[in-house]
Amino acid sequence: MAKAIPAASAAREAPVTNWWLHPVRVLNQSVVPRLILIVMCAVFILPLFWMVSVALKPTAELSLYPPTFWPQQLRWENFSDAINVFPFWQYLRNTSIITGLTVLGAVISNPIIAYGFSRIDWPGRDKVFFVVLATVFIPYPVLIIALFDIFARLGWINTFWPLTVPLFFGNPFWIFLLRQFFMQISQEVSDAARIDGASELRILFQIIMPQALPALAVVALFAALHAWNDFLGPLLYLQDATMYTLAVGLTFFQSASQYDIQFNLLMAASLLVVAPVITLFLIFQRAFVEGISFGGSK
């Protein structure tokens, strides 16, 4: 691994103006890390690359052997064909609404709960927190029947509520994640604020949250991904075809015989489905990666 550089200067390349005088330094700081990164990226881009490649191939080219790495002939119509297999725009709208509500629920509820589990010292807290963690291990398939019964009784079937309302009550992973961040923030800051008479809510929103923004951004992103890619939930709770989400729409590329799939169209549709998420990630990655401060130790 290349020489580790103090984190503060990360992403800012050390200026090497007269590089010919420092060949070793240039090698260590610019060439080696890049080589390693590029090799790793080559592996990790593979699934996406293959999706793009297949998505652009005409059906006939799919059967070539050995497979063509890059389409010999680009067929952009695959995309327009794909969005005609299911009501893409309608499903995009549905998925966006569900995702928006999910993210909202996640960023409101989880910090509050995590605060209660990390910054306030109450008897039994850690025992209860253990219960929170324990819930992570409940296999979802087993909750299906009982949850469906509850939502049916509430009259929520065929609405977005079963997919969004539970998110307003915290998610164990995200509570855990935020708690791990919160616990690293020095206790003195909040003690001082308490002595000044600040309420706990104020401490959370004015002192703790600003320091944990990257973690909150991570939670928001994870929540968005969860909602965007969720498959089983929408499948069970949304029964009207006009209510479906994009993830459910993707299944329509499979035929009932399940062996026969229009692979190029499936990949084209999948790309359209992930495009917004990728965009979102590219926009926000700076927010939670650049200048991250982990805890109160700057």
Binding site: F148, L232, Q239, T251, S255
Partner: peptide, 15 residues
């Protein structure tokens, strides 16, 4: 309703 691969009759049963 979506093809039955992942679902079997899950969707029908729950509904």
């Amino acid at each position: 309703i979506p093809p039955a691969q992942v679902t079997d009759v899950t969707q029908l049963m729950t509904a």
